[in-house]
């Protein structure tokens, strides 16, 4: 099908985009990579009367770092993230996960900001934002505010952004040298949305004891799901197989809430979550310098 008619603006400055959003918040949509919005418009699920195209706003497409954190402009393309050296060294979890997002043809257009604001529970980037404790900068004509990733996702395709706000930057603290990581998912075909996926982080002290852990799941509820109890059960402990088994059981049976879809039942998703958690924890421990 074809999209319904709309008016089109392509500002070159963020300031212009903000003022357009302020005037037209109720009828306008921001166009980033278009890889979620345009399919929805083609199906007329969404019919904005005005599109504000952010593709000319050069000042939103950077990836830089300061002393402790990466700063990524919302218009940085998924393909840019994939090959960025700072991301590879500072946040190897993100580097490992980006190639799982769709296909190269989609990543060439799709942006980090678009995927985060789209807040699809099956998407990788929202999960990574939670796992990496991202801070998200929202801006409107009246000013800017920072939102922690854990407060940003507000349910299925819903975020904490106000209608006139634009997500402008993502701040990611560097991963520590003692933190191991792993990203794993199962998809029917490479590049498809996954049936289940997990991002795991494990920090070990010099004695090999776990000081911090994180387990965040995709396609496991109405947003990215942070399995806090399972992660907590690992902290302060030497990570044995039995402990990992029980954390995997806790996360997959109690903390996630998968809905199933045409490809899978919720039971199978829970099974996948359990298997993936054990595998991901092992890999993360190894990368943290542990014995497993």
């Amino acid at each position: 099908m074809k999209p319904a008619p709309f008016k089109y603006h392509a500002p070159h400055l963020l300031e212009e985009a903000l003022s357009l959003m302020n005037q037209h918040a109720d009828e306008a949509k921001l166009l980033a990579g278009g890889q979620s919005l345009v399919p929805a418009m083609n199906f007329r699920v969404v019919q904005p009367s005005l599109l504000i195209d952010l593709n000319h706003v050069q000042e939103m497409a950077y990836i830089s770092e300061d002393k402790n954190a990466l700063h990524i402009g919302a218009m940085a393309r998924e393909r840019q993230l994939e090959f960025n050296a700072s991301i590879e060294t500072r946040t190897p979890l993100l580097h490992e996960a980006v190639p799982f997002i769709a296909h190269p043809q989609i990543r060439n257009r799709g942006t980090i900001g678009g995927s985060i604001v789209n807040a699809d529970p099956a998407a990788e980037l929202p999960v990574l934002m939670l796992a990496l404790d991202a801070r998200l900068k929202a801006q409107s004509i009246s000013g800017e505010r920072w939102i922690n990733a854990k407060d940003f996702f507000a349910g299925m395709f819903t975020t904490a952004l106000e209608p006139n706000e634009i997500l402008v930057e993502i701040e990611l603290p560097f991963m520590s040298a003692h933190t191991g990581w792993s990203f794993m998912e199962v998809a029917p075909r490479a590049g498809d949305y996954a049936l289940m996926g997990v991002a795991a982080l494990v920090t070990l002290d010099e004695n090999g004891k776990c000081t911090h852990a994180k387990l965040v799941y995709l396609n496991a509820g109405d947003g990215p799901v942070d399995a806090k109890d399972a992660a907590k059960s690992l902290e302060g402990e030497t990570l044995s197989d039995a402990l990992m088994e029980s954390a995997a059981a806790m996360a997959s049976e109690k903390e996630i809430n998968p809905f199933g879809n045409v490809h899978t039942s919720p039971e199978f998703q829970r099974h996948l979550a359990k298997v993936l958690t054990k595998k991901a924890l092992k890999q993360a421990i190894q990368r943290a310098g542990g014995a497993q």
Binding site: Y8, A10, G34, Q35, V38, P39, N42, D53, N55, P104, Q105, I106, N108, R109
Partner: peptide, 11 residues
């Protein structure tokens, strides 16, 4: 490489 069905001609 990109999908030409997911971008408007005007872009």
């Amino acid at each position: 490489s990109i999908r030409s069905c997911l971008i408007f001609a005007i872009q």
